[in-house]
Design a protein around this nucleic acid. Structure first.
Length: 742
RNA sequence: GCGCUCUUAGCUCAGUUGGUUAGAGCGUUCGCUUCACACGCGAAAGGUCAUAGGUUCGAAUCCUAUAGAGCGCACCA
């Protein structure tokens, strides 16, 4: 049979009619996504049931880094979704039992403070006016609404997530996991309650962890005061009321006549005091005068010195940043107002030696912007240095029955390759962070989040989500740091603490690709929790990606008003184009500059593909896919196979950006520019064998190209796939990867 | 202060274990209503790969130094 029919013939064919107008993503994408979702094939169990995947195929799992329910999807999410979906779709086509778990994060402090702000603005009420129960209800309602928006946005990106396994960090199943994790760690002595110095945010009225701090440069003054026979330097005179210890380095020759523990009388801010000399080698002799007084209640460093020498600690500043009665006439003043007045008083007393301009960094709370005031507080902590015996381990370098600390566990998991971190720079940053790690303060004085599962009954303590049967038990009022539940994410989403099939099959997950901002905050804590609770790493490979920036290389931010809504880009160019624009040429780990003109280019590419399909379908109508290939055509087919192999290698190595670029380049500049062009004279000529061969070649190349391109541009490839005269899978999504076809 | 990363065409970036003449997209210029596609086709201009040394038969790639940019950690009273 002659494979070539005239255009008029194919126009009578319904399948070809749609190719007569340019590709229209907006008309296509929602329909295709609905068809995928309806097929159930995002769910690996369903893939097995429908015969698309073998029941004993290897598993491949990824968990979506859960977006916060505080707002809307931004371009950074769009990038993460594109990257993961490309990998997941590739693995699914390779025949793995592929699971991508969706979810969202309650983001406790961020969400609560946002709702608080709204309520304050609209109703003039504080959370205390509403009360705990009402406030939590309001925050949850906001979260619910926001969740709906975010989930529909993720769908529009084409993300092939198994929605039947959707999880929320604050749902009941995750709460069970949190309580179980807390109890296990408490029983192992790794969670404890104690008076410790913490980062107190007076604005947010809560503690925060070291990792939630942002340092900001501040211009201020550095003062030198006479303190008995010494001159001390300070940038914070307002904390100095209670200072009765003067500290210097034991080897400092300038002060060698003074002995540790020696006392002297001196005039100070509010009258005479008795001061004690302390020698401590944490003092930097070069800084200031090499002598300082300490305020253990309000400084991390001072607290450590005081603990070391067993010194008294006294609170000077309250939780709202106001001076306490110890400040005498200054009591009740805000520290910012009091500073100058205190200096004035010391100057009047002749104790001010000199002052000089000074630039230093002050700690502020990432979420609220409040200036951190260290305070000593009774809080819950995860100890990273207490030894425990690990009962179960599949992690290389971690022996069952050996004694470890959480620190050593986190280090070993990466050091011995349990978690591959191929980016050397990030690996170093990870180790550096671990080496400087302090105990993790996990209690937060807010209301939205997992409540600390601890009950107090007089002297007794009970751990659980419900009170014991007897009377008089009170639950701890605080909630857990949001990262506590996030850290369980890879296995809490799979049903832990139950020993589920999902947990057995899909954990450890295959890879995780977070932004480098949360390497410490999240990645390391997942390694901690997963290692301790189930003796596994949370993921085998972690690839840190960069930030998406604007064309000028700036971060997207509200103040610059340079934010880009992924949905408006999708409306304009289609999700396929956005995905390609984000993926191609964006080496994983470096920052990505977002350029709309590039996305536009890939919209054109989608249309190009559309026309490639049109040309091939029109010119090969009725062609036999068994026709023998001429030697020339066989060579072209072999070239494709070589490309497919390269792309496959790239995908195995997570070089998604290269894979996408190569197949793009092939489709446009080989298939369309060369192969299609040289086909025209062949189809016009008289040689029936050559025409048959060429028709078969083109059909095959179209088929294979669609497969190869599908992970990156799922919508347009699926839409064209549906027009193929012969196909071995109803959905391209579950068709075989080219290197696995025959 | 300690550490990490980057510097390639006008712009944004690729360039995998060192190996032909360093690539892409966008932009620019010129020419094309060629019946798959103007969301297109054909062509062109444009680079001492930050700088200076070194290793090597061979360096954008490895090493050292310098300059610039960005980031992380520690923050010191």
């Amino acid at each position: 049979m002659d494979p070539i029919r005239k255009l008029e013939d194919s126009r009578s064919n319904g399948a070809s009619e749609k190719y007569l107008s340019p590709y229209d993503p907006s008309a296509t994408e929602s329909r295709i996504y609905a068809a995928w979702e309806k097929s159930g094939l995002f769910n690996p169990d369903e893939c097995v049931k429908q015969g698309a995947t073998k029941a004993d195929a290897p598993a491949y799992a990824v968990t979506l880094p859960p977006p916060n329910v505080t707002g809307v999807l931004h371009i950074g999410h769009a990038y993460e979704d594109s990257l993961q979906d490309a990998v997941v779709r590739y693995q699914r086509m390779r025949g793995k039992r592929t699971l991508w778990v969706p979810g969202t994060d309650s983001a406790a402090i961020a969400t609560q403070s946002r709702v608080e702000k709204n309520i304050q603005k609209e109703e003039g009420k504080s959370r205390h006016d509403l009360g705990r129960e009402e406030m939590v209800k309001r925050v949850a309602a906001f979260a619910k609404e926001s969740e709906g928006t975010i989930l529909s946005q993720i769908r529009r990106m084409g993300a092939s997530l198994d929605w039947s396994r959707y999880a929320y960090t604050l749902d009941d199943a995750r709460n069970k996991a949190v309580v179980a994790a807390f109890k296990r760690m408490y029983d192992a002595g790794l969670i404890y309650r104690g008076h410790r110095i913490v980062n107190w945010d007076p604005k947010g009225q809560t503690t925060i962890s070291d990792d939630e701090i942002v340092y900001k440069e501040e211009q201020t003054k550095f003062y030198y005061f006479k303190y008995g026979p010494f001159t001390i330097g300070t940038a914070r005179p307002e904390t100095k009321f209670g200072d009765k210890y003067v500290v210097m380095h034991p080897d400092d020759p300038r002060y060698k006549e003074w002995k540790h523990g020696q006392t002297f009388e001196t005039e100070w801010i509010n009258g005479p005091i008795t001061a004690t000399v302390i020698k401590d080698d944490s003092i930097d002799r070069e800084f200031g005068t090499g002598v300082m007084t300490i305020t253990p209640w309000h400084s991390m460093v001072d607290f450590d010195i005081a603990e070391h020498h067993n010194l008294d600690k006294e609170q000077i500043i309250d939780e709202y940043g106001k001076l306490l009665p110890i400040a005498g006439e200054f009591a009740g003043m805000k520290i910012s107002d009091a500073r100058e007045k205190i200096v004035e008083k010391l100057r009047a007393k002749g104790l001010l030696v000199k002052e000089e301009p000074y630039v230093h960094n002050i700690a502020t709370a990432e979420r609220t912007g409040g200036v951190i005031e260290p305070q000593v507080k009774l809080q819950w902590f995860v100890s990273v240095t207490r030894p425990f015996v690990i009962e179960h381990s599949e992690i290389p370098g971690v022996e069952v029955g050996s004694s470890m600390t959480l620190k050593s566990l986190m280090r070993a998991a990466v050091e011995h390759g349990g978690v591959a971190m191929p980016q050397e720079g990030f690996r170093k940053a990870y180790f550096h962070w671990i080496d400087n790690l302090r105990d993790w303060c996990i209690s937060r004085q807010i209301w939205f989040g997992h409540r600390i599962p601890v009950w107090y009954g007089g002297e007794q303590v009970h751990i659980g989500d419900e009170a014991p049967a007897s009377e008089g038990w009170m639950q701890d009022p605080d909630v857990l740091d949001t990262w506590f539940s996030s850290a369980l994410w890879t296995f809490s989403t799979l049903g832990w603490p139950e020993q589920t099939d999902d947990l057995r099959v899909f954990h450890p997950t295959a890879f995780m690709s977070p932004a480098y901002e949360i390497l410490n905050l999240w990645v390391s804590r997942m390694i901690l929790m997963s290692g301790f609770h189930i003796g596994q790493v949370p993921f085998k490979t972690v690839l840190i990606h960069g930030l998406v920036r604007d064309k000028q290389g700036r971060k997207f931010s509200k103040s610059l008003n340079n934010g880009i809504d992924p949905l408006s880009i999708i409306d304009k160019y289609g999700a396929d184009a956005l995905r390609m624009g984000l993926l191609v040429g964006a080496a994983i780990g470096s920052d990505i500059s977002f350029d709309e003109s590039r996305v536009k280019g890939y919209k054109h590419f989608a249309n190009k593909l559309w026309n490639i399909a049109r040309f091939i379908l029109e010119n090969t109508h009725g062609a036999s896919i068994d026709a023998p290939l001429t030697p020339g055509d066989a060579q072209i087919a072999a070239q494709f196979d070589a490309l497919a192999k390269e792309v496959t290698d790239d995908m195995e190595q997570y070089r998604v950006y290269l894979a996408a670029e190569k197949i793009y380049h092939y489709a446009w500049h080989e298939l369309a520019d060369k192969i299609l062009e040289e086909s025209k004279p062949i189809f016009a000529a008289d040689d029936a064998d050559a025409r048959a061969s060429r028709a078969r070649l083109l059909l095959t190349l179209l088929d294979r190209t669609l497969r190869l391109l599908h992970p990156f541009m799922p919508f347009v490839t699926e839409e064209i796939w549906q027009s193929l005269p012969q196909k071995d899978s109803t959905m391209l999504m579950t068709a075989k990867w080219p290197s696995d076809v025959r």
